[in-house]
Design a protein around this nucleic acid. Structure first.
Length: 283
DNA sequence: CCGGACTCCTGTGCGC
DNA sequence: TGCGCACAGGAGTCCG
């Protein structure tokens, strides 16, 4: 379940490997992973629109979206969804794993050839094509809130102050803050000692300050660890992320709180499993 | 504005 | 040992 740290760790390892590389061709193994502008599986795809003949100019990220920018300003967004990943390898020998849907063949000749794959067993992820930076901003990124990695307390306060929803639900909303998912919201709320069911607009300034700092520090630590591998997440090399061992609450329901020893509690909020410490994070 | 149910998907891990 | 089923959830839609 790639959230911001997983996508950022992927971006950091991918960028130096592929920026500048020409795309010799694109193998389309499953075209319904391409989404149209409404997110439906109806996107049209041919190698040219997927970048064939162009050079990869940049690898960016906004929230949980990985962005491959081509020379000339077009590009594509890779949304990893629940189980998506990209892999990068040299040569042709690798056996095609199940659920690899797209392959970009990179390099100017046989000798420099590398292949970049998009793998997504559950297919909650997908690819969005864009024509220009303006198209990218307006059509695909327009509704995203500020980056969670650098969230400012004042900005967070004004964003959370607009809603009475439970703070956890609000933080999962990508238009409020971009990049958080179930794991890191639970971890950040625990570090900030805030109850996940607390109405978002009723957190005091001190709590907001702690929350902003917790979000930033946890994301930074997780990025440095390569993200959290629960099952599917891998860096392009196949390497696992190591942040799972640092989780204090996510996936640890019934275990003692690492901070105070009280048994952690699991509830459901917005149909998502939510683990917190009833003592440290009391209402 | 809000919450909740539903949809899309497959691998996994449990109970029987 | 093996089968069937609940569960995991990001993001969108729809309905009350």
């Amino acid at each position: 379940m790639p959230e911001l740290p997983e996508v950022e760790a992927i971006r950091r390892t991918l960028s130096p490997e592929v920026v500048g590389a020409p795309i010799r061709g694109v193998r389309i193994l499953r075209r319904d992973v391409v989404r149209d502008r409404r997110g439906r599986r109806r996107g049209r795809l041919d190698p040219v629109h997927a970048g064939a003949g162009l050079r990869i100019e940049r690898v960016d990220r906004r929230g949980k979206q990985l962005i491959l920018g081509f020379e000339g300003g077009s590009g594509l967004i890779v949304r990893l969804g629940m189980s998506g990943r990209v892999d990068l390898w040299k040569g042709r020998v690798r056996r095609t794993p199940p659920h690899r849907h797209l392959v970009w063949v990179l390099g100017s000749d046989e000798r420099s050839e590398r292949r970049l794959g998009f793998v997504d067993p559950r297919r909650f992820g997908g690819i969005h094509l864009y024509e220009s930076p303006a198209d990218l901003d307006e059509r695909l990124l327009g509704n995203l809130g500020p980056e969670a990695t650098s969230i400012d307390p004042g900005v967070l306060e004004s964003r959370l102050g607009r809603t009475t929803r439970a703070v956890k639900v609000a933080l999962l909303d990508q238009s409020v803050v971009a990049g958080l998912g179930n794991i890191y919201v639970d971890e950040a709320l625990h570090r900030a000692l805030i109850n996940p069911t607390q109405p978002a607009d009723r957190i005091d300034s001190n709590g907001i300050e702690m929350l902003a700092r917790s979000i930033r520090s946890i994301l930074q630590e997780a990025i440095d660890a390569g993200g959290s591998t629960l099952r599917d997440h891998r860096l392009p090399s196949g390497q696992e992320g190591r942040y799972r061992d640092a989780h204090q609450v996510y996936g640890r329901a019934t275990e003692p709180c690492p901070r105070c020893g009280t048994s952690l509690t699991e509830i459901r909020l917005s149909a998502r499993s939510t683990t917190f410490c009833p003592s440290c994070q009391a209402l």
